[in-house]
Design a protein around this nucleic acid. Structure first.
Length: 293
DNA sequence: CCCCAGTCCTGCGGGC
DNA sequence: TGCCCGCAGGACTGGG
């Protein structure tokens, strides 16, 4: 499930197409229900073909391919989408192919097993309108602790549920929310409005640490093997998860608690009851730093 | 406004 | 061994 580290890895992986010219857009034959592609293929083709890729950015969990002529193509992978330079995991689920010339890559592929994702061509104005500060919060790697506290501190939601709200902070999904709160030593069910400044500092520090480390390992490829980088290689961060999908395991950090699984807002949450007590202990470390391994 | 529940989709694993 | 059901969770929508 691509979250910030996986999408950032995709973005970096397709950077070689900067400078290439789009010479074709194809929707491969696919018996599957087509994913959302906007505008319709003919118009997409008319607007994109002939344009040159000038930059690749990321908006939360989306990869944005910027073209000259004032348009951008937004890839939103949702659960199982991949942006690839080559070698799709299967041809059955290949959804869109951008043919390229004049650069280091011949094509950019969008692959999506479940097909919940989308590809959209937006003008610069449409892009700005769609992703303004109301609809999407600051990126999780750019937000300050003060901004995080200001945007979530009055919410009565459980902190884990609130961290998934892309309007508050962009890029955190179910997996990394669990890992971040474990590193910060915060119980996922604690209400945002009951957290103190120290808690937000700890969550902010843990966010930067966990996401940075996950990017270094090129993201998490779970047991279903879906997530791959732009060259169809697995990520490595799944081997460093402390809590996600590890219910019943003894916690690596405290060697005492067993990882628990609960459900919040219809999503699985994992945590260590020793490292993440529901009632705040007076001795919790400040700043979210965890003892070195 | 705030928050929750339902929706989309496919593949896989557990249970019988 | 085979089949069915439930689950996985991105973003979005409708409603209390």
């Amino acid at each position: 499930m691509p979250e910030l580290p996986e999408v950032e890895t995709m973005r970096r992986g397709v950077l070689p197409i900067v400078g290439s010219r789009v010479v074709g857009v194809e929707r491969p034959r696919c018996r599957r229900r087509p994913i959302a592609i906007e505008p319709a293929l003919a118009r997409l083709r008319r607007l994109a073909v002939g344009a040159t890729v000038i930059d690749i950015s990321r908006i939360g969990k989306r990869v944005v391919v910027h073209l000259d002529r004032g348009y951008s193509i937004v890839f939103e992978p949702r659960m199982t989408g991949l942006v690839l330079l080559a070698q799709p995991p299967t041809f059955e689920h290949l959804r869109l192919r951008l043919l390229l010339a004049g650069g280091r890559a011949n094509e950019l592929l969008y692959w999506d097993r479940r097909g919940l994702g989308s590809v959209r061509l937006l003008s610069t104005a449409e892009l700005a309108a769609r992703f303004d500060e109301v609809t999407i919060g600051p990126d999780a790697l750019a937000i300050t602790a003060e901004q995080l506290a200001a945007r979530l501190g009055k919410s009565r939601r459980a902190v884990k549920v609130a961290l998934l709200d892309q309007r508050a902070v962009a890029g955190i999904g179910n997996l990394y929310a669990a890992e971040i709160l474990h590193r910060a030593g915060i119980h996922p069910a604690r209400r945002c409005d009951r957290l103190r400044k120290d808690d937000w500092l700890a969550i902010h520090a843990a966010t930067v640490e966990i996401l940075t480390m996950a990017i270094r390992y090129e993201g998490s490829t779970l047991a279903d093997g879906t997530y791959r980088n732009a060259l169809n290689n697995s990520g490595g961060y799944q081997n460093h998860h402390r809590v996600y999908d590890r219910a019943g395991d003894v916690c690596d950090d405290c060697s005492a608690g067993r990882i628990q699984r609960i459900v919040q807002a219809q999503r699985a949450t994992f945590f260590c009851p020793i490292c993440q007590p529901l009632r705040q202990s007076s001795s919790r470390r400040a700043g979210g730093g965890r003892k070195a391994k």
